[in-house]
């Protein structure tokens, strides 16, 4: 068990898988030499030093070619892990990702496998406008043949990336910009997570909230507030593996319901969902021991939480 950031946990997963399997290689824009030895968000930092520029390949700026070439490599015995710098740029990869990677195993009657991981990140972070802030995971979920992974903690980041790399089918792996510098405990080397299962983050009896990534932290804050406000304990799940065609339902999933609130309920509801105070932020971004999560010098702007609260979830909780 070691404490590290989400970004460091992803880096560790890549290292471990590249050491374990020579078929694993990394490819993308600025993954080898940019900044502090690789990766705009530091996920591939130092990999080129350990594995060489053959297995950690900087590419020209052409997302379509990056994913297209990765599909061909995956079909012929390699396990490419490609980086698309921002998930907004997935739009440029639609042909190889949706028409080729997702469909070839099926259309070729099972004679091919496409063990491909497309790493990218989602979420808004600090004034980058609408071409660097999109969250396109639900779009990807609607493509049969693509699997979608969305880790919420450093431990999940490492474990899910290892699972994704070992999977024989294409995985779009969404990291979250606001989580890259969040710290957390990461367990021992052989830890990995089975796809398709949710993790219970907080147990309760009255309602279920499904949340992922940065919103998980928000939900936990609200759940704590609800618990102290007295409507009963709540249960929080982190969905790591949404799937459109999976036959395995999310255990414990409940559809949200809505009732028009009375004035009294409105007041009570507002107390629960009012915008967070600075005290709330402190609670969200500090670990149980009160330690600051992430380094103020390199990540403080990225740690500003989104202002939207999960109102539907709170309605449901009430």
């Amino acid at each position: 068990m070691a404490e590290m950031t989400y970004s460091e946990a992803l880096n560790l997963a890549l290292r471990e898988e590249m050491r374990r399997d020579p078929a694993v290689f990394v490819m993308g824009e600025d993954v080898a030499v940019w900044g502090d030895r690789g990766g705009v968000f530091g996920v591939t930092r130092g990999l080129a030093g350990e594995f060489g520029l053959d297995r950690v390949r900087d590419t020209p700026i052409n997302e379509e070619a990056i994913v297209g070439v990765a599909v061909g490599a995956a079909l012929t015995g390699m396990r490419p892990v490609v980086e698309i710098m921002y998930s907004d740029f997935l739009t440029l990869t639609m042909e190889p990702l949706v028409n080729q990677a997702a469909k070839l195993r099926y259309m070729f009657g099972g004679q091919a496998r496409v063990p491909l991981v497309v790493r990218t990140n989602l979420g808004a972070s600090g004034g980058k406008a609408a071409q660097h802030s999109q969250s396109l995971e639900s779009w990807m979920m609607h493509v049969p043949g693509l699997q979608v992974a969305m880790p919420s903690t450093p431990a999940d980041a490492r474990a899910l990336l290892k699972t994704a790399i070992r999977d024989d089918n294409p995985v779009v792996f969404f990291e979250h910009k606001l989580l890259y510098f969040q710290r957390g405990e990461v367990p021992g080397p052989e830890e990995w997570l089975e796809f398709g299962r949710a993790a219970v983050r907080r147990k309760g009896r009255h309602a279920t909230v499904v949340a992922a990534q940065a919103m998980l932290g928000m939900v936990l804050v609200v759940a704590s507030r609800l618990a102290s406000a007295g409507p009963g304990r709540s249960r929080c799940r982190r969905a790591t593996w949404p799937s459109t065609t999976s036959t395995r339902p999310w255990r414990g999933f409940a559809a949200p319901t809505f009732r028009f609130p009375t004035a009294r309920r409105w007041r009570r509801w507002w107390r629960l969902v009012r915008p967070p105070s600075s005290r709330d932020f402190g609670r969200f971004w500090r670990g149980p021991g009160g330690a600051r999560q992430g380094s103020a010098s390199r990540g403080s702007r990225a740690l500003v939480a989104p202002s939207a609260w999960p109102v539907t979830a709170v309605d449901h909780l009430r």
Partner: peptide, 23 residues
């Protein structure tokens, strides 16, 4: 490695196979 219903769909696959052969 397959015929392809997308015009130009084979470019990436062929280049990827070439990269794989190199690696």
């Amino acid at each position: 490695l397959g015929a392809n219903g997308i015009v130009g769909g084979g470019f990436g696959i062929a280049a990827g196979a070439a990269l794989s052969a190199r690696l």
